[in-house]
Structure formats: structure tokens, C-alpha cells
Amino acid sequence: MINDMKDPRKTFGEAVVEAAEENGNVIVLSADSSSGSGLSDFSKKFPERHFEFGIMEQGIMGIASGLATTGKIPVFAAIAPFVTARPYEMFRNDLGYMNQNVKVVGRCVGLTYDQLGSTHHSIDDVAIIRTIPGVTILNPGDPVTIKKAVHAMIEHTGPCYLKIGSPKMPVIYPDNVEFKIGKGIVLTEGTDVVLIGTGTVLPKAVAAAKLLEEAGVSVRLIDMHTVKPIDRELVLSAAREIGRIVTVEEHYVAGGLGSIVAELCSEEYPAKMKMIGIGDFYASNGPYEELLDKYGLQPEKIKETVIRFLNQ
């Protein structure tokens, strides 16, 4: 049901079980991380397809690569910085350069490990992983698209990085929403400004769009659930038709969705832009919703930023 609140990790785990029922090559690798990734049910249902390695993310990346050479489809889920920043070279060489069919899942992305501080925040994962050629980056923003993203990445051949949050998220989409890798979803049509949201803060962008509509601003709202490859046509049509783009992401402004959109537009069709995200500093610690507010990612703050941007 729309607006129901669901646990993203539990939802992810359910989808992996579904995918494993359909495809016997799906296996799960754990860095002491399966229970926290919603994969306890998988490990109970498919004990012979669940492999525990303990806390060795670098090793697991290589092991996943080797497994993929034998036709397995390894799913490796753990806390996001530990599957991106820590084993970056293994991601780049063993998965990217070798073009292996491995699915890496960073969970508790962005600031969702709120209190635990900057070692556990993952606000640079898109920036570092998107430099690896051939890696698909998925960042779904509601439980329905999380499930669809899991199935899509299993069906897709090649290395993928999927981002999953931690706090419960509202259902935005009906079950029959169409989800295609590389194709963003237009949630509302509008004429004054384009708001592009992704991942954990998509619901915030949805709420902000409503506030803006109430304030008389017509918003074209886009869910960019695939960060790489970016939906070029959707971005460029927004640039051509409206010319004012605001991106919203729980990530550093440097190197994330905003950067990707800006790189594309600056070469193909320059548009006025505002990138909402985190600046060049280590994020603070505290309650999640308060952190989002501190960094301008709550609906009211997004609305204010958009109005200021339009009045410039």
C-alpha cells in the first residue's frame, strides 16, 4: 500500500530469497554481515548457498570474482563503506576490470548509521564506484523499487552496486510500476523546476515537491534510481524543456548524482543547477532525521533551497 512504512533491509532480503528461488546460481557471501543485511531468512532457507567469511571485505571481493568465473552470481551485502571505500581496488580490478557478474550491496548508506559517525557513513560511495567502467549503480528510493532493483540486477549480467538504507521507508510506487535499469521515473510533471531525487532521500524530495506545489511552484519530479548509467535523455529533456534542475541526494555533492547531471548538461545542454547534498566535510553524528535537517535534506529545507534557487 502507498505510504506504508517498510524496512529496506528486510525488503531487500525478501527479494534476494525470491531471486534465489528463481535462479539457482544466486549465492550470498557474508562478511559477518548477513543478519544486518536482511539475509537471515536466506541463510536459513538456502544454507548451502550462504557462505560466511567473517570480516574480510577485501578478500570477499576477490572470492566473489573467482566464484563468478564459475557461473555463480554472488550477492555480497555489508555496511556500505566497507564494500566500497575499503576494498575499492578489489572492486575496481577483480569485479570491474575483470567484468565479473557480482552484485555488491552497500546497506545503511548515506547518514543512516547516524550516531555511529563518519567511519560508518557512506556519502562518497557513488563518487568512488562510478569511476569504475562497466559498473551499474542502483539507488532505489522506496520498498517497491528496492525489490525490483534486486531482480533487475540479478537479471543484468555484469558488476552492480546497489544502495540500501536502514530506517523504514514509505511505499511510493504501486506494485506494477515499471523498473528498468538506466531509465528514471517521472513522478510528477511540471514546468518551473526539475527536482531529481535518488535513494534514501527520494521520499524527502517527494514531500518537498508537494510543498512546492502548494506554494505555487510547478515541479517535474524525477526518481533517478539508476545513478550509472544515467538516463541521459531524461536529464537532457529536462534541461531543454525546463532548464532549471535541482538534485537531491544523501551523498557528497562532489561526485554524486548532482555531479553526474552537471557533467552531462555542461557538455550537452547547459542548465541552471542547484545540487543539494553534503559539502566538503565529515558529517556530524546524531539522530538521523536531525542530521538530514542539518544538511538541508528535509522537505521544508529542500523547498526553501528550491525557492531561493528560482529567485536567483
Binding site: 549465492i27 557462505f51 577485501q58 578478500g59 570477499i60 571481493m61 576477490g62 572470492i63 566473489a64 570474482s65 573467482g66 566464484l67 563468478a68 568465473t69 564459475t70 557461473g71 555463480k72 554472488p74 581496488e89 578489489m90 580490478n93 577483480d94 576490470y97 575483470m98
Partner: peptide
């Protein structure tokens, strides 16, 4: 069989291959 060069990668990859063969009873 593999793209190596950065040191310390090969043993993990080889272990993954060996585990894959074990799973397949190859």
C-alpha cells in the same frame, strides 16, 4: 584467467574459483 598486477588479489580470486568448483562438485 585473471587481471592481476595489483599484488595481494590472486589468492582471493583463486579461492573463489576453488569454492565455485566445490559447489559444483567439479
Amino acid at each position: 584467467e585473471t587481471n592481476t598486477g595489483a599484488l595481494g588479489h590472486g589468492l582471493s580470486i583463486a579461492s573463489g574459483m576453488a569454492l565455485g568448483f566445490k559447489i559444483d562438485k567439479s
